[in-house]
């Protein structure tokens, strides 16, 4: 439950405006999560500024997805604080309330509603009343229709609008999920591996879209595709074994000795074989390090 300063509860459907006077929209402080003794997140601290585009990188198992699970309420951390703006304590809310206060998420494995049409998928995701009676009797307004059409155009699925989502290709499902995210008009978008399975051209369009969203929205992108990260990143945070290893601009991070050490230490560990999109040079861990060490020299 969300409570205002006087202690009276605010229903989550009310538009909760996060208090971002300090310029920070998402506070993650000293968060730890363990699975059967294994620390997936270890005293993690992360601050996302209002309107920024942040890239999160890190090897497989670094805890990137777990971090998103914590922010969106899927996993309760063992310790720590997660705040939306200064006042809204996200740990007090459940998944649907967190979604309604304005945090949207795209999953690593694209999850769309397979038995529904592309159109319905977006319709369900639209911002607005999520109550039962509205869903039963409510009709789409003209404005909402226009919004859906606009989103369909943005994600390039206008012709597929009435296909069942299960018939879409992997890349199209990724787009659909991004469309669902747009429809919800969240303040913060958490985007987990958006370009996996996309062609080079699609990847470029995704990069454009995410960059254009920053400013009005805060966007956190997790991606293994370094070329993609380089093309959109302003600030990059490197996660390693559940904590933040480094933070800064792409070149700062690349020249950080700790980062180099970690990536060198597990040269075969970083696998990005799954998400090398066509059109981008292969970016294995070694090449990544070579690029950064040559800069050093």
């Amino acid at each position: 439950m969300i409570v205002d300063k006087a202690g009276t509860p605010i229903t989550a459907t009310d538009n909760v405006q996060p208090d971002t006077r300090h310029g920070v929209i998402l506070y993650v402080e000293d968060v730890s999560v363990s699975f059967d003794g294994f620390k997936a997140l270890n005293d993690l601290n992360l601050y996302i500024n209002d309107g920024e585009l942040r890239c999160l990188i890190g090897a497989n198992g670094a805890g990137k997805t777990t971090l998103m699970d914590v922010i969106t309420g899927k996993i309760r951390p063992d310790t720590g604080k997660v705040n939306f703006g200064q006042q809204v304590d996200l740990l007090q809310l459940d998944e649907s309330e967190i979604a309604r206060v304005g945090i949207g998420r795209k999953f690593q494995k694209p999850t769309v509603f397979e038995a529904l049409s592309v159109y319905k998928n977006i319709e369900l995701s639209l911002a607005g009343d999520k109550g039962i009676w509205t869903s039963l009797f409510g009709k789409l307004t003209g404005e909402q229709r226009d919004r859906i059409d606009e989103i369909l155009r943005t994600i390039g699925l206008t012709n597929e609008a009435f296909y069942m989502a299960e018939r879409l290709s992997h890349g199209q499902k990724q787009w659909l999920e991004i469309g669902m995210l747009l429809a919800a008009e969240p303040r913060v978008l958490l985007v987990d591996e958006p370009v996996a399975g996309m062609t080079g051209q699609e990847t470029e369009r995704t990069a454009e879209l995410l960059t254009s969203l920053a400013g009005e929205h805060s966007v956190v992108v997790v991606e293994h595709d370094m070329a993609f990260v380089r093309s959109i990143a302003r600030t990059v945070t490197v996660l390693h074994q559940g904590s933040v290893l480094a933070e800064g601009s792409m070149s700062e991070v690349q020249s950080n000795p700790e980062v180099i050490k970690v990536y060198l230490g597990e040269d075969s560990g970083e696998d990005s074989g799954d998400d090398n999109s066509e059109g981008y040079p292969s970016e294995s861990g070694e090449e990544y390090i070579e690029a950064s060490s040559s800069k050093e020299g």
Partner: peptide, 9 residues
């Protein structure tokens, strides 16, 4: 529909 591309993840 375009054939589903082999996608990562």
């Amino acid at each position: 529909l375009k054939a589903p591309r082999a996608g990562g993840q």
